[in-house]
């Protein structure tokens, strides 16, 4: 009986992978991506708020006990925080640090205020006419939410019927002095 012929397979053989089609695809993809790439990322100061926070803002607007927080910014005096409730107000001043606005201290103060008044989400901002736009943007950054991810504020979720937590402090900032000198009551908010 004839023995079956053994086919010799060289397990150590090498072969060249044809990369030409892959390269062709890449050559076409690179110009497409180059055109649509954004090398300068631009964002907007706008906060998409969770529903519970939006509801809390609505609740604050309808609240008969008028509780209001106002932040005045002056290039010579620093920050002045005014908390008014039932026609009574308290003031806190954050002086300049080395002749500049102390943003770090402002954030610490605002976190402390938010802990005391977790139901307030709206803040009136009154910057002085000389305050630079970059400083206004920095202030809004300090006010919007706590930098420390471990710091959370209680907010009541009416749908679940229990208190949840949010990192937002004062997401609704209103330029309250925008209409100064006019008789119109309109304001611009972020």
């Amino acid at each position: 009986m004839r023995r079956a012929k053994k086919i010799k397979i060289n397990h150590n053989s090498e072969f060249d992978l044809d990369l030409a089609p892959l390269l062709a695809v890449m050559v076409k993809l690179v110009p497409v991506l180059l055109i649509s790439s954004a090398f300068v990322q631009m964002m907007v100061i706008e906060t998409e708020l969770p529903q519970v926070v939006s509801e809390a803002i609505q609740k604050q607007e309808n609240d008969p006990i008028q509780k209001n927080i106002t932040l005045d910014v002056d290039p010579t005096q620093g920050f002045t925080i005014d908390i008014s409730q039932n026609n009574q107000s308290t003031n806190e001043n954050i002086p300049l640090k080395n002749g500049l606005l102390d943003f770090e201290e402002l954030h610490k103060h605002m976190v402390a205020i938010k802990k005391l008044h977790p139901e307030i989400f709206k803040l009136d901002l009154n910057p002085d006419a000389k305050i630079a736009y970059k400083d206004i943007v920095k202030i809004t950054d300090e006010l919007r939410q706590a930098h420390d991810p471990n710091i959370k504020f209680p907010v009541f979720d009416s749908k679940k019927g229990k208190v949840t937590e949010t990192p937002f402090m004062f997401p609704q900032i209103i330029f309250a002095n925008m209409m100064e000198g006019t008789h119109n009551g309109k304001t611009t908010s972020l």
Partner: peptide
């Protein structure tokens, strides 16, 4: 009245 400020990341 709805203002959106453009900033860099």
């Amino acid at each position: 009245p709805q203002l959106k400020l453009i900033t860099l990341v």
